[in-house]
Design a protein around this nucleic acid. Structure first.
Lengths: 140, 140
DNA sequence: GAACTAACTTAGCATGCCTAATATTTCCGG
DNA sequence: CCGGAAATATTAGGCATGCTAAGTTAGTTC
């Protein structure tokens, strides 16, 4: 009677909308925008170059430049040079940046945890089972 | 060994990030931003007042004013008056707006359908089972 | 009918994203 | 080894989206 993947897509589209609002709320009122949070997260395991950051966040290089400028102004990251290639600028967390990242992450995870704790055990299991599928989506 | 809802929250947080990118791609290059698309969608079943729209989209009234201004300039909606209360402005789809909405929706659904069609039958079933749970999240 | 509340709009500002143009630096072919 | 192409970043300018504060007009209340 109905085309299955298309029908699923319609429902999924609704749910995505809902999740966007959920995310917005879980990020509200924090001392970092989600973009800034994301960039800091990318720096967690050490310095990165601008190009890497831009690609990882699926934005153009100039966008990342501005983003990093703000983080630098806020004292959360520092720019450095790559000794091997003078064209490359590296970006690195400051101590304050690392601290801020951890604090914001803690709050975000806590808020999500509250939402998830309101579910039943079964629902959490269903959700957990779907996560790998969601992760796979769009990687094709 | 580990706190279950918190652990799930961490994984879920990652997946949400991924989905944001997916959404961004499914909206790319269309003749409506996702916000504009969302507002048009709210008008599908008839005129609405500004306050309703702002609440539904979780933005402040001035933000919605600007949004509707743009849609009006583009000829996709018209503003009207509520005969019962001269303070309220109503917003309604034009024929062109309705047409545009349908066109964009078709493309978006089609793109999502492609992604979903790339999954196995089992994966789609797993995803479908999780949709009600996702929908429930944040409604508590 | 004066004061309060409600519904919107205007104005001004920050953020996020883009493209085009500009430096620099590196790489590579001849 | 040198001149042009490619790579890495930044600056500049533009648009969309969001916010708060302040102003306008209309209804409500006492």
């Amino acid at each position: 009677m109905r085309d299955d993947p298309t029908h699923l897509a319609e429902q999924f589209s609704q749910v995505l909308r809902h999740l966007v609002f959920l995310l917005r709320r879980s990020a509200a009122g924090q001392p970092l925008t989600s973009q800034q949070y994301g960039v800091l997260g990318s720096l967690q395991h050490g310095p990165r170059r601008m190009t890497e950051l831009a690609e990882e966040h699926a934005v153009q290089l100039p966008t990342m430049t501005v983003q990093v400028n703000r983080l630098e102004d806020a004292g959360l990251v520092t720019r450095g040079l790559d000794p091997a290639d003078a064209r490359v600028r590296t970006v690195e967390l400051t101590a304050e940046g690392r601290q801020r990242l951890e604090a914001v992450r803690t709050v975000r995870i806590a808020r999500l945890t509250v939402e998830l704790a309101a579910l039943t055990e079964d629902e959490r299991a269903t959700l957990a089972a779907a996560l790998p599928v969601l992760e796979k989506l769009g990687r094709s």
